[in-house]
Write a protein that binds this DNA or RNA. Structure first.
Length: 424
RNA sequence: GGAGGAGUGUCCCGAGUGGCAAAGGGGGCGGACUGUAAAUCCGCUGGCUACGCCUUCGUAGGUUCGAGUCCUACCUCCUCCA
């Protein structure tokens, strides 16, 4: 925790009170300054998002929730899409050479990412309505020499070298490219530019962004901007120490076309006991007394809290209806032992079905397994089931008689993953 | 520019003597136990038209019946010297 927060001054603003109570705060640069602006509804705040993928994932969710609460408490959120900075690429963290994204790819990602915000933020022209901008707007036309003279002269390399992110790389003797310096500078410049255009005063982000944000504050001071502020949220890990939403299966995407609501619901349903209270505060909008009640449930009853967590979190991203349907599907599947027609399904063509699908390829076709070899191994381990019966014969071919549930074959990997294989 | 060291299973780390689909971890996936949890224990963790075939140890050649292992060139990274 930052020393800046340790003094615990009195909080007047709803925004900071909520940030504190719900566990969003990691570091902030000036509690009193931020608090005063927030209390007046003048804390225009931005978070920047690079367009490196077509969807956000659970790891990005925290900052979006923070923007939501900011708006709820009467302040103006600004969503900055990094159409410009993505062209440079943030090299921090990655040691593998990242492929350069094409301009078209960045644009496509940007359009796809935009949809995430609509459920949590209200956009418009009003004083606390959210605004979305793209930093390509001012970064692309920049002239190198002019930028160096006007902006670059304010950067102190000495100071940048003392930043944690840089120091770490230097100490470990890892390559630190000039590109990375530029990224920091561009992000800092964004902050100043946004303060000019929208009166932005605060930048929020993950704890790894602290250095970059503070660099922006510094630049703002040197370029005559009003006092700027920083606020970061913690890097969320599960109680077991795993990074939030990252698995071998891939990221837990927020876009429904990349991760169906049912899977999203299941993700939250499988939260560890020890995380339930914390996640309810961070990832749902439930009032804190309700959270406290759910958190207090012990033993197997905690499962009720997990269901609430799953439904509430899913409702935020995919809507109440999809969340309820996911909950229903789960109840039928896990509690009643009934095959639900709403389970994820994969449809094969009539020709494919009539040609006779072997069980091995059926599981691969359903997307449950990556290869027939893996299917063979899972059969040996007793991990595959067809219509809820453990599969022992890897040579078995699916026939019409197997289509018992809703005209589909229910394929299961382990106890939790089910897919309906449909054919016309 | 000179001297030395390193690149291993496409998730990561990491052993490796000329017979290697390649030790051991971590992670992941399955099974058991449970509560769709954690912890614990067990199994699996290159591909396929599968008692066989194919592809893998930075890249390209070479020696050999046989190369991750030996030789040559090249690429990348690191350390020391200039």
């Amino acid at each position: 925790m930052a020393e800046a927060t340790s003094s615990k001054p009195e909080t007047k603003s709803d925004f900071l009170r909520i940030m504190t109570e719900r566990g969003y705060l990691h570091q902030l640069s000036d509690h009193a300054g931020i608090d005063a602006l927030a209390a007046k509804g003048e804390l225009t705040t931005y978070v920047g998002y690079d367009c490196t993928a077509a969807s956000f994932h659970v790891g990005n969710l925290l900052s979006i929730m923070m923007l939501h609460w900011l708006q709820e408490t009467g302040n103006k959120p600004i969503v900055l899409m990094g159409g410009g900075t993505t062209q440079v690429g943030d090299p921090s963290g990655k040691d593998e050479s990242r492929q350069m994204l094409t301009l078209d790819g960045i644009e496509a990602n940007k359009m796809s990412l935009k949809q995430t915000f609509s459920r949590l933020l209200r956009f418009g022209e009003g004083p606390s309505d959210a605004v979305m901008v793209d930093n390509a707007e001012w970064l692309t036309p920049l002239n190198y020499i002019a930028f160096l003279r006007d902006v670059g002269r304010h950067f102190s390399v000495n100071r940048m070298l003392s930043m944690d992110s840089v120091k770490l790389r230097l100490d470990r003797e890892h390559e630190l490219s000039f590109l990375e310096f530029n990224y920091m500078c561009l992000q800092a410049y964004d902050f100043v530019e946004l303060s000019r255009r929208y009166g932005t005063r605060l930048q929020m982000g993950g704890s790894d962004q602290w250095g970059n944000i503070v660099t922006g504050i510094d630049l703002g001071r040197r370029m005559g901007a009003p006092q700027l502020y920083a606020l970061t949220c913690p890097l969320i890990t599960t109680a077991s120490g795993a990074k939030m939403g990252k698995s071998a299966q891939g990221a837990m995407w927020l876009n429904a076309d990349m991760k169906p609501p049912y899977d999203y619901w299941q993700f939250w349903r499988n939260t560890e006991d020890a995380d339930v209270g914390r996640f309810l505060r961070l990832y749902t909008l439930l009032p804190l007394d309700e959270v406290a009640r759910l958190e207090a449930l012990g033993g197997a009853e905690i499962n009720e809290a997990k269901k609430v967590l799953a439904t509430e979190a899913t409702a935020i991203m995919h809507g109440r209806e999809a969340a309820e349907r996911s909950a229903m599907t789960a109840q039928q599947t896990f509690e009643q032992g009934v095959t639900s027609a709403d389970l994820p399904s994969v449809t094969v063509s009539a020709e494919e079905w009539n040609a006779g699908i072997g069980v091995l390829s059926a599981f691969v076709r359903a997307g449950l397994l990556a290869s027939t070899g893996e299917a063979r191994r899972q059969i040996k381990g007793g991990g595959l089931r067809v219509n809820d019966e453990v599969l022992g014969d890897e040579r078995r071919v699916l026939v019409d008689a197997d289509r018992v549930a809703e005209g589909a074959v229910k394929l299961s990997l382990g106890r939790k993953k089910h897919v309906l294989l449909r054919a016309p």
